[in-house]
Amino acid sequence: MAGLCRKLARWDAEAVRPYGVSTEDVMAIFHPETSGGGLARSSAPDAMAFIARSENQPAGCLAFDRFDDERAEVHKFFVDESFRGRGLAVP
């Protein structure tokens, strides 16, 4: 999960660079150093994380925290570039 979160952070940083947002700002605000490992140790008791695997390799991740019995907030959603286009993120 931590590795996928780091790849997501790099993707985020590249995506916002044309808008003048620095990589350092993206990493500090949206992806603190504890993003990957800290997610697994989240203090939110209902937080969940899933890892999609393809060919026995981690291909993507989804993490969310429940608001209540009917609603949740997505915290992370990422499919590694090498696995995109294969339908991994399609239910």
Rank of each mutant, 00 (worst) to 15 (best):
M1R: 11
A2M: 02
A2K: 07
G3W: 02
G3V: 11
C5T: 09
C5M: 12
R6W: 03
R6A: 12
L8A: 14
L8R: 05
A9L: 04
R10C: 12
D12Q: 14
E14D: 15
E14W: 05
A15W: 08
A15E: 14
A15I: 15
A15H: 09
A15D: 12
R17Y: 10
R17I: 13
P18I: 13
G20M: 08
V21E: 05
V21L: 11
S22G: 12
T23S: 10
T23M: 07
D25V: 13
V26K: 01
M27D: 07
M27Y: 14
M27C: 09
M27E: 12
A28L: 14
A28P: 04
A28I: 08
I29L: 13
I29C: 05
I29K: 10
P32E: 10
P32V: 11
E33W: 01
E33S: 09
S35Y: 05
S35D: 13
G38T: 14
L39W: 06
L39N: 03
A40Q: 14
R41T: 13
R41P: 02
A44G: 09
D46V: 11
A47C: 11
M48W: 05
A49M: 09
A49W: 04
I51W: 00
I51K: 00
A52G: 04
S54L: 12
S54M: 09
E55T: 02
E55I: 02
N56D: 14
Q57I: 08
P58G: 00
C61W: 02
A63M: 10
F64V: 06
D65W: 10
R66T: 11
R66N: 04
R66Q: 11
F67N: 05
F67H: 11
D68A: 03
D69C: 07
D69W: 01
E70Y: 06
E70I: 13
E70S: 10
A72V: 12
V74W: 05
H75E: 09
K76Y: 15
K76Q: 15
F77G: 01
F78S: 05
F78R: 06
E81H: 10
E81P: 06
S82R: 11
S82E: 09
S82Y: 00
F83E: 00
R84A: 04
R84V: 03
G85T: 07
R86N: 09
L88K: 00
A89F: 04
A89Y: 01
V90H: 00
V90K: 02
P91K: 06
